[in-house]
Design a binder for these strands. Sequence first.
DNA 1: TTTTAACTTGAGCAGTCGCTCAAAATCAAA
DNA 2: TTTGATTTTGAGCGACTGCTCAAGTTAAAA
Lengths: 195, 195
Amino acid sequence: MANKVKFERENVVRVASQLFWQKGFHATSTRDLQEAVNMRPGSIYSAFGSKEGLYCESLKDYTVQMKTQIEGFLSSADTVLGGLRAFVENVIIKTKGCSPSAICMLVKANSEFAEKDSKLYELSLDLMAQFEAYLTQIFEQAINKGELSNTLTAVEYARFFQVQFTGLRGYFNRPDVEQFAEPMINQMFMLMRKL
Amino acid sequence: MANKVKFERENVVRVASQLFWQKGFHATSTRDLQEAVNMRPGSIYSAFGSKEGLYCESLKDYTVQMKTQIEGFLSSADTVLGGLRAFVENVIIKTKGCSPSAICMLVKANSEFAEKDSKLYELSLDLMAQFEAYLTQIFEQAINKGELSNTLTAVEYARFFQVQFTGLRGYFNRPDVEQFAEPMINQMFMLMRKL
DNA sequence: TTTTAACTTGAGCAGTCGCTCAAAATCAAA
DNA sequence: TTTGATTTTGAGCGACTGCTCAAGTTAAAA
């Protein structure tokens, strides 16, 4: 007994996510969003409550997308480390031009929201912790398969991966330096086996 | 034959720098700045031209401050690597509570300005390149003194340092994790000697 | 076909933004 | 002490912000 919603929520969140990832929360205006998702303010606010609400969903969707991407690379690779490596190469080198930003949206969020008790800062921490837990599972597999030594625990490998990956993505957030990317990714995975 | 300026330019830039570093460019309003530096809009605009102008000076001042800090640690350490290590520990562990942000202001700037041809993005790239050149000089000394092998060039060590340091600072931009910091800094310097 | 609850629309509100500029204040030189 | 170039002041401008809500549109249920 009603009217149906005309938009597909998933699609809207995905488009908003791209815009937020590119420009950041503060630099993205509600007018930018209205144009990008082709919705009028009333519809957006009845569906998401606020700009912050839409950003929350966008950030959560981003981590889901990342995990899905990793799953894909893992399932079509012979080894766990091979899959992770393909994922890293894809993010840093292959999707360089078409990605909204070289830098992880979670890291951007974490650095943008300075007030340590703000909802959005807490959300970024929470999602990062979840992602670390997810990586930990993956590294458990790598250890169990004998791809990595057990001198480090799985969570320590996960932390190492996070630091390296974040560092590399930050470093390559510039137009010119694809030439150094490949050897530095080599270095990262070589070092991981030496830990 | 005139009036004298009432403010000390260096001090104003330093205070503005702290605020910009903490909140980012877009989330810092001119009213915030006015209050922080205790100047009326007219004075600020006659001295710095625009919010962007003040930000430029703030960002440049930040890199000067960083270099000065490194100089200090280098001159009061026995080895180049020891000095760098003291610097890293100071930034990540010791000044944790009092620093406006765990994340490097240059990295924050680089990630905040998405439009690849904007003046502020170009400035962040420029200052990062300068800083890499500065680090390269330092690593040249480390190699010459025999503290590091010459399997990598000085600039390659500098890049490695940047990636690790940026990664660590990003990772430790949270309230609770000082406990992991020390071993991970250990790891960073251990790995550098193994390259 | 009529009813009616759900959804969409967009003009526009109240507040904030970066910034300006005429007037007041200041102080070295005359 | 007077002069006059220079700096400081702050009210306030026009643009933009996140967001609201009364009016209009839609389509399933009656």
